[in-house]
Write a protein that binds this DNA or RNA. Structure first.
Lengths: 202, 202
DNA sequence: ATTAAAAGAATGATTGATCATTCGTACGGT
DNA sequence: ACCGTACGAATGATCAATCATTCTTTTAAT
């Protein structure tokens, strides 16, 4: 009755692959239809599998969307962490790399997604919980970046700046979702000014 | 056969009232369910009228949502114009009033709406056209505010700053939509720093 | 002023499509 | 022979939109 270790591993790997396959398909559907308009039958068609089979890997549609949202946030945080890790102690360098990297993080694909999930989070607590969690991680990353530069400031002053950066980071994402960014360079310059205003130890 | 002028006026007034009534109901539904999940029957119930009757005043559901979106944007622009009109020529004063006013403009109700419509605009051209139009008006208002302060700068430099302010203004709205703003004062201070960075004639 | 006729306002059951989810069935590896 | 994998038709709910119908208001003629 007991399955071999190899069999278990193969099964787990297949499950993972299937789930990823479903999430990829769901992403494609949500991208053009939105969370609510994306139907299970179309997701199934996109994934190249049957409708019923999807329910073997996810409890229901909402579970798929939540998993998709989480996967997207994780990917976003991965990029942010990379910026945070490579940050130095020179204000100019931080401002410059941060604004440039953030701008390049924006593609309309990711942005449209974030927008979709944020809208859902505005009314569905399961999604807003996810947003709260990723906000928390994002704040930590931002604090790690600016704290070395603003050593003299009070905890409260730093928190205020972290919060501002968080909102600005998010807003860029959302902006990119609505329409193609015309001139990344110009926008990066503009945000460099804004970031410098927030980060500079005045 | 020709109706009296008084009758026409009364009819027009009633039409206006009915349309507003429908839009109010639609707003309430979209607020808690989103554009797609909001059903005509629930909108009708909220409006206190029959489903069929709604179709006397709007061609279809999308037309209602577009009208609702437009009404919301118009209201938003009204507030922005008020800020723009009262702006002086002193940088500090501009930065201070602008950041404070913008923050106070945010209530989670309006924000959740904007979020919803932005998400829709990311895939529906009819909505994105609306966004493009309101962006245009918003840019004009922002340019009117900062141009007197940045007289020496090139057209390109000013455009870059206008664009940055536009994105920042929008992002605040989105942020407010996702969750309640904890400390408006702190956020206003943070954005004052950012705005000063963008607006200051360096 | 009264009233019959016409127009407009409002209803809600109905239609056909689509939705998320379930279930009976079949295939294929072990 | 067994069991996990996979299918897709079936189910019942819900959707946007329509339409036959009933009220209500307005108009025109007396």
């Amino acid at each position: 009755m007991v399955r071999t270790a190899a069999a278990v591993m193969r099964q787990e790997e297949r499950t993972g692959r299937r789930q990823a396959q479903i999430l990829d398909a769901a992403r494609a559907c949500v991208r053009v239809e939105g969370i609510h308009a994306a139907s299970m039958s179309r997701v199934a068609a996109e994934a190249g599998m049957s409708v019923g089979h999807i329910y073997q890997y996810f409890e229901n549609k909402e579970a798929i969307m939540l998993a998709l949202c989480e996967r997207d946030f994780d990917d976003f945080m991965l990029h942010i962490m990379k910026i945070s890790d490579s940050a130095g102690r020179d204000v100019d360098a931080i401002v410059q790399t941060f604004s440039k990297e953030i701008i390049w993080l924006l593609d309309s694909d990711r942005a449209a997604f974030t927008l979709e999930f944020m809208a859902e989070a505005a009314r569905n607590p399961k999604f807003s919980d996810l947003v709260v969690r990723v906000d928390h991680r994002l704040r930590s990353a931002l604090r790690a970046i600016i704290e070395p530069v603003l050593e003299g400031l009070s905890r409260r002053e730093i928190d205020m700046r972290v919060e501002t950066l968080l909102v600005m980071t998010r807003c860029l994402t959302v902006h990119a979702g609505t329409r193609p960014i015309g001139d990344r360079g110009a926008l990066a310059s503009g945000f460099e000014l804004a970031f410098r205003g927030v980060i500079s130890p005045s």
